[in-house]
Design a protein around this nucleic acid. Structure first.
Lengths: 180, 180
DNA sequence: GAAAATACGTCAGCCTTGTTGACATATCTC
DNA sequence: GAGATATGTCAACAAGGCTGACGTATTTTC
């Protein structure tokens, strides 16, 4: 009776295939795409002794200068102890500076330095190149469509947060009533 | 002279915005989308004491039954020591079985058990639902386009590997001469 | 048929980045 | 002044990457 009622023993030789509403191909593509998407920045970061976590912090501090620690935690969905580790390093290396909040002096507003801005740009460059190259394959007019798809992949509660990020530059925003 | 030539001190107050070929919005959307995309399986896996690494192994063993350890390492791009840890658990829990290669008996072919197949399906379900919901936003006829975009995000060397995965089911494959 | 190469397993230790829990300090609010 | 809030920090732990080293079975090569 310690033999289980099967299920654990016989090997299945048939490949699991798409169909029946199972999107294996897109699941796999998403996995491979994200892995390669993060590989170029990882390369650059490693020379500074940084990792992917530093990248994220640096990115959002550059995108939303003056955001507080609490706001950053809310964007990244990590604990303050996790954040503290990498944020401290970014501050010590002069990529990010903290300033007491002018209204509430318990808060710490985070700003990039020129050095931090430069690194953020350097990290965004290969990722942007990759995206543009991919859009080349679909036709660049599909940018809005890709954006809509990715946004719809995000949990609804979090989409509001995304809308709060600066939009500037790109001409073809979604249907949202965002840019005046 | 231990003051640096600036760059590390002054806080920048202007937000980094898209434009100049910098695709900040898509970069962020990709990050948020992937995070949420992996969150549903993570939930399920945690009840078995498994993590994301188990998911990947289980997924590809189900998609390519009989693949060898070396082949799996090549797909996942991790070291055999990393793989060993999670693979052992999947075998011990009866989700995966090993069989000596019939031609080369040094090899170990990996197969899912019914139990392993069931878990793989359970993990693919919420991810597939999310993808279908997102395709609803773009119009489901754009599936091929999304696929083309994601594939183009993958490093060229690796795209061949993707083509070797089973395609079945989905009616609108890309231009590739794949389905006879 | 011996020697070398290959496929795999395993031991040991390290790193990054996430987690929880506890506690200190400054500041704001009531 | 009391209590809530924003942040920092210490300590310990877990997952899942990594390197290096070594053992064993099997195949290939000379």
């Amino acid at each position: 009776m310690h033999e289980n009622a099967q299920g654990e023993s016989i090997p299945i030789r048939a490949a699991l295939e798409a169909g029946d509403g199972l999107e294996f191909d897109l699941i796999e593509l998403f996995f491979f795409a994200y892995r390669d998407f993060t590989s170029d920045p990882d390369q650059i970061l490693s020379t500074d002794g940084f990792g992917r976590a530093h990248h994220r912090v640096l990115h959002f501090v550059n995108r939303m200068p003056g955001l507080t620690v609490a706001e950053l935690l809310d964007v990244l969905k990590i604990t303050k102890q996790s954040l503290a580790r990498v944020l401290k390093q970014l501050i010590d290396t002069g990529h990010v500076v903290q300033m007491k909040g002018p209204k509430d002096r318990r808060q710490r507003e985070l700003y990039p330095t020129p050095k931090g801005r430069a690194l953020a740009l350097a990290l965004a460059l290969p990722q942007s190149r990759r995206i543009r190259a991919a859009l080349q394959e679909t036709g660049p007019e599909e940018r809005a469509l890709i954006r809509r798809f990715l946004k719809a992949m995000v949990n609804p509660e979090l989409r509001a947060q995304i809308d709060r990020l600066p939009h500037g530059g790109a001409p073809d925003v979604d249907g949202e009533p965002n840019d005046g």
